[in-house]
Design a binder for these strands. Sequence first.
DNA 1: ACATCTCGCAACAACAAAAGTTTCGAAATC
DNA 2: GATTTCGAAACTTTTGTTGTTGCGAGATGT
Lengths: 151, 151
Amino acid sequence: MRRDSRLSRMLHVLIHMDRIEGAATSDQIAQMLGTNPVVVRRTMAGLRDDGYVHSEKGHGGGWVLTRPLSEITMLDIHRALGNPGFFAVGVAIDHPECLVEQAVNSALGSAFEAAENLLIGKFAAVTLADLADDFDQRMAQITAEPNCELT
Amino acid sequence: MRRDSRLSRMLHVLIHMDRIEGAATSDQIAQMLGTNPVVVRRTMAGLRDDGYVHSEKGHGGGWVLTRPLSEITMLDIHRALGNPGFFAVGVAIDHPECLVEQAVNSALGSAFEAAENLLIGKFAAVTLADLADDFDQRMAQITAEPNCELT
DNA sequence: ACATCTCGCAACAACAAAAGTTTCGAAATC
DNA sequence: GATTTCGAAACTTTTGTTGTTGCGAGATGT
Ligand code: FES
Ligand code: FES
């Protein structure tokens, strides 16, 4: 089953945005992500609606962060993307009145609920500033050459 | 994103199989699941390969359990279905050498790993006999009328 | 003013994965 | 030998995502 990588991509983008001068255009971001600008706008629309970024038209326009990375958690971005379900596996509801199905789905459901709560807790605990710090540490260790337009 | 409900369905089926006389045909199971026999065979093939069920051809043939429910865990069935990934959300690998991406994916990856371990632990701890017991308790509480061929 | 850049939005096309269907064959029972 | 039932391959349908195209609106530069 194909995986939704929007969260990973958006986190990546936002941290880069924090490090560059001025605005990043949808085109630049699209190239960085190996996709096209319309997809970028579609994805970032959620972040804009939730107030994490702002978009500006015209010359020198594009996307800018509207608040410091320290005030955005991974969970915030997940929510801004529409709070998509984390799981590719779920319960079947073929016979809602069947007690076997109920017993099975209750066991499955509580396991997934526990896993989801764990994920939510972990995501809420990490700000983008934490990720940026992690990046700095990695950068300090090995001085690697970034290979794309946005450094 | 569409969810894989094979695990839920197979657990449901196996517990029913334990309660009926003789073999259950792919056709019967398909009706119970609201699908068709070919899909059932496809899905159950994994369980057969891992030795949880046996299939017999010809008159009176079909599927039978090859071991007691107490010796099968939810995790066993998940594995028998090809050990599909639990998550619908995953990391993007657009620029493997980008340290920002690495930092992001490390944070995401460790969260998913923890959640997956939690799920595996929970699934391994529940046998199908446990689910059947849960069913019995539900049955004892409310005496409901089963509505399908397999009671 | 006018050209250019950039986002916003909607409609459409392309693609991929899962599920469902059809068809044939093989083995077991009646 | 007829019938039941699984096994497997090929094909179609469905569904959701992603990518594309096209037009319009707002902002900036000349
Ligand atoms: S995409 Fe992260 S360095 Fe270019
Ligand atoms: S499907 Fe569970 S009772 Fe019929």
